[in-house]
Design a protein around this nucleic acid. Structure first.
Length: 876
RNA sequence: GGGCGGAUAGCUCAGGUGGGAGAGCACCAGCCUUACAAGCUGGGGGUCACAGGUUCAAAUCCUGUUCCGCCCACCA
């Protein structure tokens, strides 16, 4: 490309479009299943097929992309498998809303028509999210994209269901589950969110024999219609002897027994609890123990059922509550109503208040599966990073309850079970059965329910690789190397993949689980549409560029803390990308006469920059290997900007102008390009677009950075000696600048400086450079012991710096300046002296530490000596 | 109720195995120095929440306290 395309300000749009297309066209993301190289594989956490990119995806995908690009460059046979999730309830809700706008509903359409409609919607919107991922630069092998309802994956689901069923790990039972009356389906425990509600506590009187009334309290008065007992605590003296008595249940004409059970908390409410076995988890358990009848008064759509009685039947549960309260009041049995704050379970998809209800559902018996999943993490077959999440994982796994997997919706994998119309037996087979397994009847009806979305997600790491067939893909890429996800689906997904992977593949689904942060807004709140604090990743990419956005996410992705995202931060890192861009511009402007060659460092700054580069390579590599993404970003930022640009580039300028001869110029050019190219390779996993663009603009034959080898750390480049020398020069230049500033010498004025002591040979060698960086006209070198009067002074390490100023020197100001410097050093030295005079420190601390402490103390001592000498000159 | 985090500069945070308190942004001052004003140079600013303890040495390890956040459970 021509240099003219290098504008002062980086314009990401064109560059991103160009390389995004290039990578796809060249098929650089394709996994080579037959490769000899060792494998590195990731399956993407499949986003909802109808979703669109939010901050959480952006972070998740960026981190995975970094790993995949990095491992690619490290020479691995990488696979990053993309795909989407059918997201049963969520998607069905979306389509139902669309239908509602057209005045339609799914019931009247029928199952088949409705599903056609959902598929249509899926086809229309399914590409949105994947296109957005491509926009982010995700290096997925798109040819292997999967969808949880693909034929292949559906087959895997069926296989898994049948195997679990035959093993007795799936059963069907009448059991208490959470029921969402709006979605019209059962939900698993995890799919219920509890919300704090300011409601009422109603005290209701149940009349007993001979005026021995019982007062009960409830937040859901309508459920009283389904009460079949009142429970008291056996040790509660207030109710001694009441057990076995009967009370009449108002509004129903029924009488119910008083039972005793230690589940009742005598401290709470009235000490007597109404028992509604069909609509409360605790009451359900109590009823089973005490053999109480179940009266189901709320039906599937949330309205009152026939058993609620003629008067209430058909009323919505909320309406019914009002009616019941009114009726109780009318007959004087509503004792009182109190304000009451409590938690109410709501559907995680539509936020409707769920009703615990007894119904016939399918469950996975998880205890035996959980045991293996616990063991695998305990034995580090899978490790969770950061480690603290392992505790959460164990905590949940130990208390796991059976998993309700049937949903009464239509969008999903239909449960492969057939009910016999004659004997009622259930037949579950891999192929659709023609006859009942029990009575051979041919009159079979397939189960209406579909499976929980998370059932298919649980198989994702191997169903996407071809299971249940034995494929080459499974052989090469399973177990996957790492799963990258946020903690909010640790239970929903990660835990269940562990269980299923171990069950069906007999091995863990991934070696590592990296749990990253949640992205929040500046205030630390979760981003949500209702809160209106959402930052749209697409807008960010539009405004600041994808690389700037990715770099921001990476730099903020410290382990263990959530990310507070703000535009300000993105702007800061956008500036970094621009800095990188302008570094490239600078290099291009100075490539005149460039000849390719190997770096031949022969002076301090060359050795220094290569040494620093080496250490940066080492640091970034370690950081990537240990998922410390923010550290990698920080190291690159620091090196490129504050070492390479601030110092090496600045130092190289006189060379590039030609002041030091052609040979030296070439040498600098080669090192400049070499170091910069190495930085581009280091940074490519984080900021792929801009690095690719710049990389191709550098001289020489250059293929895609993706095919380049990631820099290797070579310890031979580490050169402590030149680092010490450079640090000396840097502090010398800084001291001169500082001095100029304090003396108010205008930046444009070239001053004269005289130096005494220290590494003056070093300075002489680099005089041109030092003069340029410190803006000096000349440097004089004084012999040690030379007396200087009437000049402002400073000390850098063990060099005295003198700066004559025009006119009369302000003795007082000068004295104060030096005294200030002395005071600062004295404070620093005191700490060191205290340590060194402590015999225990000298005895017990490691020798190296004692030595460096002593050396530092001596260094400060020398500096102080010099300052004191200078101070003398102003106190006479 | 059970569990897990966090508290470090004005703000947002970094500080693997204890050994010189850091970054970015913001702020102050001065600069369009021929890559970059999305830049350059210099500067100010912190009892590392509080109280104890271990240690020659604690932001870092231990105990307790306070305040914030989150997860699980769901108490009628």
């Amino acid at each position: 490309m021509s240099n003219s395309a290098f504008e002062k300000v980086y314009n990401p749009a064109v560059v991103e479009d160009k390389w995004g297309k290039f990578w796809l066209a060249e098929e650089l993301f394709k996994a080579r299943v037959d490769s000899e190289k060792s494998a590195f594989s990731i399956v993407i956490p499949p986003p909802n097929v109808t979703g669109s990119l939010h901050m959480g995806h952006a972070l998740n995908v960026t981190l995975q992309d970094i790993l995949v690009r990095y491992k690619n460059m490290k020479g691995f046979n990488t696979l990053w498998l993309p795909g989407t999730d059918h997201a049963g309830i969520a998607t069905q809700n979306v389509v139902e809303k669309l239908l509602a706008d057209e005045g339609l509903d799914r019931q009247s359409m029928g199952r088949e028509k409705f599903l056609e409609r959902v598929w249509l919607w899926k086809e229309q919107s399914g590409d949105t999210i994947t296109n957005q991922l491509k926009r982010l630069g995700a290096s997925c092998d798109w040819s292997r994209e999967r969808f949880t309802m693909d034929p292949g994956l559906s087959r895997a689901v069926r296989h898994a269901f049948v195997l679990l069923f035959k093993k007795g790990l799936i059963y069907r039972a009448n059991y208490m589950t959470n029921w969402c009356p709006r979605c019209h389906t059962a939900l698993s425990d995890l799919e219920v969110d509890f919300k704090t509600v300011h409601g009422k506590l109603y005290y209701i009187r149940y009349p007993g024999e001979q005026g021995a009334d019982v007062l009960v309290a409830t937040t859901r008065p309508e459920t009283m219609l389904g009460d079949t007992a009142v429970a008291i605590n056996p040790s509660d003296k207030r109710f001694a002897g009441w057990e076995g008595k009967r009370v009449s249940l108002p509004l129903t004409g029924r009488t119910i027994p008083i039972i005793s059970d230690k589940m009742v908390d005598p401290e709470f409410g009235t000490g007597a609890v109404k028992i509604t076995p069909a609509h409360d988890f605790n009451d359900f358990e109590v009823a089973r123990i005490h053999n109480l009848p179940f009266v189901r008064v709320i039906s599937e759509n949330g309205s009152m059922s026939e058993d609620a009685g003629e008067r209430y039947r058909g009323l919505d549960r909320i309406e019914c509550r009002k009616a019941v309260v009114k009726d109780l009041e009318a007959i004087g049995l509503l004792d009182r109503v109190e304000d009451y704050t409590h938690n109410v379970g709501c559907c995680y998809r539509c936020e409707t208040v769920v009703e615990p209800t007894v119904s016939l559902q399918w469950f996975v018996r998880v205890a035996p599966l959980a045991e293996k999943a616990i063991d695998a993490v305990k034995r580090n077959r899978t490790s969770i990073i950061p480690e603290m999440w392992e505790k959460t994982y164990f905590e949940w796994m130990y208390n796991i309850k059976d998993w309700c997997i049937s949903r009464q919706i239509w969008w999903g994998h239909r449960i492969p079970a057939w009910h016999c119309n004659e004997c009622g037996a259930v037949t579950v087979e891999l192929d659709d059965p023609e006859r009942c397994g029990q009575c051979e009847s041919m009159h079979l009806t397939q189960e209406e329910d579909v499976l929980d979305t998370w059932f298919s997600s649980a198989l994702w790491p191997f169903s996407t690789l071809g299971w249940p067939d034995s494929t080459r893909e499974l052989e090469v890429y399973y177990p996957t190397s790492v799963l990258v996800t946020a903690f909010d689906i640790l239970f929903f997904w990660v835990a269940r993949m562990m269980m299923m992977g171990l069950e069906f593949m007999d091995d863990v689904p991934f070696r590592h689980v990296f749990i990253h942060a949640l992205v929040r807004d500046v205030e630390g709140y979760k981003m949500s549409k209702t809160r209106g604090n959402v930052i749209d990743p697409l807008e960010v990419m539009e405004k600041y560029g994808t690389d700037a956005f990715r770099f921001t996410l990476t730099a903020l992705a410290a382990q263990g803390r959530d990310i507070k995202m703000s535009e300000e931060r993105i702007e800061g890192y956008r500036n970094f990308i621009n800095k990188l861009w302008n570094t490239a511009r600078f290099i291009h402007l100075n490539l005149g006469g460039f000849k390719e060659g190997d770096p031949e460092p022969d002076c301090v700054e060359d050795l220094w920059i290569l040494s620093r580069l080496g250490k940066t390579v080492r640091g970034v590599t370690e950081a990537f290997d240990e998922y410390r993404f923010n550290e990698a970003a920080g190291l690159i930022y620091q090196f490129l900007w504050h070492e390479y640009c601030d110092w090496y580039v600045e130092i190289s300028k006189p060379y590039l102008i030609g002041d030091m001869g052609d040979r030296e110029k070439e040498r600098k050019q080669i090192i400049l390009v070499f170091v910069f190219g190495t930085v581009l390779r280091l940074a490519h996993p984080i900021i792929p677009f801009v690095t690719e663009e710049i990389w191709h603009s550098l001289p020489g034959e250059r293929g895609s950075l993706l095919l380049e080898r990631f820099p290797e750390f070579d310890e031979n480049v580490v050169d402590e000696e030149s680092e010490v020398e450079m640090n000396y020069l840097i502090s010398l230049i800084r001291a001169v600048r500082h001095l100029r500033r304090e003396l108010n010498i205008p930046p444009g004025y070239f001053a004269k400086v005289r130096l005494r002591g220290g590494m003056l040979e070093r300075v002489k060698k680099m005089e041109t450079v030092v003069k340029r960086l410190a803006r000096l006209e000349s440097i004089d070198y004084l012999p040690e012991g030379a007396v200087v009067r009437n000049e402002a002074s400073s000390v850098a390490e063990d060099t005295d710096i003198f700066l004559p100023i025009k006119g009369v020197l302000d003795f007082k100001a000068e004295r104060e300046r030096i005294e200030k410097a002395i005071a600062k050093l004295m404070r620093e030295r005191k700490g060191l002296v205290d340590k060194l005079s402590n015999s225990e420190f000298v005895m017990k601390a490691p020798e190296g530490l004692v030595n460096t402490t002593r050396a530092r103390e001596e260094e400060i001592g020398r500096k102080l000596e010099r300052l004191n000498v200078n101070l003398q000159l102003f106190t006479e």
